[in-house]
């Protein structure tokens, strides 16, 4: 039992970071119906930025979130304006998939040229610190990453529920046409939301590099996980993304410890398939009505 509880702790802590990454993806999908498959590459880009700040300017990776996040918010806004906004017509959703995939490959290429393909890791002095709580080990950096992710998700949630911008976002999610008729500037909402989605990836990326070694190709694995989290949680649902990420983290950790790591990812996908058979819209997703 001790082993299982230890695995659950490991899974919950890492699930929190995945929740932060996935929150940006689900937010952007909810508002624009854009599946941003560059989200994983943006996480890795942020991991490199944080790594560079740590290596060259000795900026603590957790503090680097304060620099990396706004910088990548601006990048996200520019990407939306230049690449995504111009997509029109019935094919816009499918085209956005291709455009963001091209963006992911572009980011990977640039990172490979600048940083080469060798693995990097951001290793502050406390990287190896472990706390023992009631006989269970809790890695300090994972705990920090979890707490930071939870705090940012709370801020994002408050932003969406307690501000005028948040109301505009939710109105656009529910009915873009009605929102526009009521005076919501849909273009502005979409642009800022895309930037917000990218900045969530940035915050998660900055701490990702402290937990895992990474290289430019690490985004392929990330995006497959993030997409499955968003689908399990329900496309466009922030709460769903959080729950799904935690389910993924815990399922994988427990299966790896109690059974075999080979089946860790597979077991999560079994959970995903079962949920989708029962609730095709995902845990918290809303079933779209046919017109």
């Amino acid at each position: 039992m001790h082993q299982v509880i230890q695995a659950v702790i490991l899974g919950l802590l890492i699930g929190g970071v995945y929740a932060l990454m996935a929150s940006g993806l689900t937010l952007v999908f909810g508002i624009m119906r854009v599946i941003n498959v560059a989200q994983g590459a943006l996480v890795i880009l942020a991991a490199y930025l944080s790594y560079a700040l740590f290596s060259h300017a000795h900026v603590d990776p957790f503090l680097s979130v304060l620099i990396v996040t706004p910088a990548m918010f601006v990048l996200g806004v520019l990407v939306q304006i230049v690449f995504v906004r111009s997509l029109r017509g019935d094919d816009a959703e499918e085209l956005s998939l291709l455009v963001t995939w091209a963006l992911a490959l572009g980011i990977e290429g640039v990172l490979s040229v600048i940083f080469k393909t060798t693995y990097r890791a951001t290793s502050p002095s406390y990287a190896d610190k472990t706390l023992t709580v009631f006989g269970y080990q809790v890695q300090f950096v994972r705990l920090m990453a979890f707490v930071g992710s939870a705090a940012l998700l709370l801020v994002l949630s408050l932003l969406l529920t307690r501000t005028k911008f948040g109301r505009a976002v939710r109105a656009t999610v529910q009915n873009p046409t009605a929102a526009t008729l009521l005076g919501v500037d849909a273009n502005r909402v979409q642009t800022l939301s895309f930037g917000l989605g990218v900045s969530m990836a940035a915050a998660a990326g900055a701490v990702y590099g402290v937990i895992y070694p990474f290289n430019p190709g690490s985004h392929y694995d990330l995006i497959s996980r993030l997409l499955s989290i968003v689908v399990l949680g329900g496309l466009g649902s922030l709460g769903g993304a959080v729950v799904a990420a935690l389910v993924m983290g815990v399922t994988e950790a427990v299966v790896a410890v109690e059974w075999q790591p080979t089946w860790a990812s597979f077991s999560y996908f079994i959970v995903l398939i079962v949920v989708l058979l029962i609730r095709p819209q995902g845990i918290f997703g809303v079933r779209e009505r046919a017109l």
């Binding site: 082993q3 695995a7 490991l10 899974g11 694995d221 790896a256 410890v257 790591p261 990812s265």
Partner: peptide, 20 residues
């Protein structure tokens, strides 16, 4: 003994089991 797939980024559970 165990074989983990290449997409395994988190070695925590693998090492936890080995250490046990």
């Amino acid at each position: 003994k165990t074989i983990y797939p290449s997409e395994t980024t988190d070695m925590g559970p693998v090492i936890q089991k080995a250490a046990s």
